[in-house]
Design a protein around this nucleic acid. Structure first.
Lengths: 355, 355
DNA sequence: CCGAGGTGCGGAAACGTTTCCAGGAAACGT
DNA sequence: ACGTTTCCTGGAAACGTTTCCGCACCTCGG
């Protein structure tokens, strides 16, 4: 029963794949029962100090590594210490900043993050949600395409907490965190109108995306009550890439009495607009405001004014909401957190109407 | 024994957390043994067609969901269908493009990707490697800090395949994929010298990073055999951020007989250099070449010439190497794949020495 | 001095699955 | 026709862990 001297010490990670060191081995070497080893490893109270010492010593000597996978199987709460993050595209700056913030918050609670890109395709989103829930993730943070809400609802009903991010979604028991897209867009477009612009073009993403609809609504609201009327020739929606945005701007500016300002309601579209204006040599004549900031916007000439969101803040809040729910999923009612936007003037949005 | 009509059909995901549907339930309903259900679910051959039908029907009726976690526990190869990706920072463009490529390749084989950011800290890298291996990942793709090589070696010896990316590392049985940093840097700097520049500044990251050392070596090599000598006043290493790079450039250009060209050996440093040159109004007078492309480099004025790497290609190759090894880890010898770089002239690198 | 109540510990069952093994039926060769 | 092989199937063991339960011991009040 006395502790056996550590005569076959191994380096950590040196055990071979087959014949791996298990709790049983640790228990034998420490001369205690399996249950006691489990209690020590999990830091549960009510084990005599000398036993704790013996078990830890044995574990160290043998190079024991706790198998988190196996432990989550029997564990009462069945928690795996993993959450999943379904983004539009991990490579896009908004997504990756969000990812970073979620990862940091998760790390603080020793939770791992699985990530996938839906590419704005509901089918992909469904597939990802399915895969992740099969892996027994403890919770889900999703930028919803809007086309997989039924699956999200089913998963939620089954007990897995969900936080939707960036886009509003009306589901029971699902928290959301968004920015005030409508107000941010309204204020930006109103600035342009107040500067004297009378023809402001609009570039927007697919109307199936909630943010695209909201920003468009803000654009319309800004015009209400001012002298300026919305000219439908200058409103382009369903634009999905920087290239398409560039083409759209070239077309619009080719009209007679072309717009003197552009509001680009998304990241990539703003970049497309910048390209078009630069190629046409109009970057100092036509005003431009984009929704969502992007790196180097300040280094362009002129600097690009934007309505900035704070992806890190959004991610942090989402992670906190999710991690808070994992303990007791149904305690608090669903919340909708709105993170403010900031207008960053850099020059392009301050260009007055020409002539 | 006849198939029971599906009278209590459920929506997928509708089963409650407790009393979840297990293979046992499916077996009972289909009137077959547990082993047969397992065979059907795993698509193993040698099960009579009508039984396959009955099992699938029962699984569908009950809304059965296969528990991947539990299955990996007993499975002979103990594969979990998960790989881990240790990056410097998921939010940096190089990393996130790499991540995207790895994710896509993994998805094609139904493998999930866990991700973490080391922030260039060996301690963090160790922590991540440890966490991931505890989760029984099938393999690891790592951008190594250089300070956790012993841990990588230990993990590899234990049987987990590893691919190191972006930086060369000399470990048994570890594949690497890098670019030819030295040659890319040499060629770029040589271009500047051939243009007539005689004083080319160097901005580099920490010398603990392999790529930083290689690019510096390329910078030196480019000078060899030309009339130009390296002036140590203009060589700044151990620079970690865009801000630091900006300060360094301001200092260097304050000297008398300042450099007429700058080679920035990393992403963020290039951006810092752009900032400094723009703020000093010298962006059209001092030549600049950066290592590693970044978004919007073409839209700056002048466009920033770079030595471009192809992170997506690197990620794809790394993923293929890793996934290939997961089946038979020790079959092929370790490989070192070198992906070529491309010089992209955009203007800033084509500025001749002033006066 | 005795019984009730608590505490620390270990054996065994359980988690949901895969794999081993053995048994029965069918197919084959002689 | 009969022994042998092959194929299919289901019961049971195993994976590494957590949790249940009961046992032994100790303490304390009466």
């Amino acid at each position: 029963m006395a502790p056996i001297p550590g005569d076959e010490q191994r380096l950590p990670g040196d055990e071979r794949r087959r014949g791996r060191v298990t709790m049983r081995d640790v228990a034998d070497r420490a001369g205690v029962g399996l249950a006691t080893v489990s209690r020590v490893i999990n830091g549960k109270p009510g084990v005599a100090a000398d036993l704790v010492e013996r078990v830890n010593g044995a574990a160290r000597d043998l190079g024991y590594r706790h198998d988190v996978t196996a432990s989550s199987l029997r564990r009462a709460d069945r928690r795996t210490g993993t959450i999943a993050l379904v983004l539009e595209d991990v490579a896009n700056p908004f997504s990756s900043l969000l990812h970073r913030a979620v990862g940091d918050a998760a790390r603080a609670e020793s939770v791992l993050v699985l990530t996938g890109s839906s590419d704005e395709q509901p089918e992909r989103e469904r597939e990802l949600i399915d895969t992740f829930t099969l892996r027994q993730v403890d919770g889900l943070i999703v930028v919803p395409t809007g086309g997989a809400d039924a699956e999200l609802a089913a998963v939620r009903r089954q007990g897995t907490p969900i936080v939707c991010v960036d886009r509003l979604v009306e589901l029971d028991q699902v928290d959301t965190v968004t920015v005030d897209n409508r107000e941010g867009a309204r204020a930006a477009v109103r600035r342009l109108l107040d500067l004297g612009h009378r023809r402001v073009a609009f570039l927007g993403d697919m109307a199936s995306i909630w943010t695209a609809r909201e920003r468009h609504a803000g654009y319309l609201e800004a015009h209400a009550g001012t002298g300026a009327a919305v000219d439908e020739r200058f409103v382009r929606r369903e634009i999905r890439s920087a290239d398409a945005a560039e083409r759209a701007i070239r077309e619009i500016l080719g009209a007679d009495e072309p717009p003197t300002a552009v509001f680009a309601a998304q990241n990539l579209l703003t970049i497309g607009a910048v390209r078009a204006l630069q190629r046409l040599g109009l970057q100092d004549r036509v005003a431009l405001i984009g929704f969502d900031d992007f790196p180097l916007a300040d280094m362009l000439c002129p600097g690009v004014s934007v309505v900035a969101q704070d992806p890190a803040e959004i991610g942090l809040i989402a992670a906190r909401l999710l991690l808070g729910r994992i303990g007791d999923p149904d305690r608090r009612p669903a919340r909708h957190v709105v993170v403010p936007t900031t207008y960053i003037p850099r020059g392009s949005g301050e260009i007055p109407p020409g002539r």
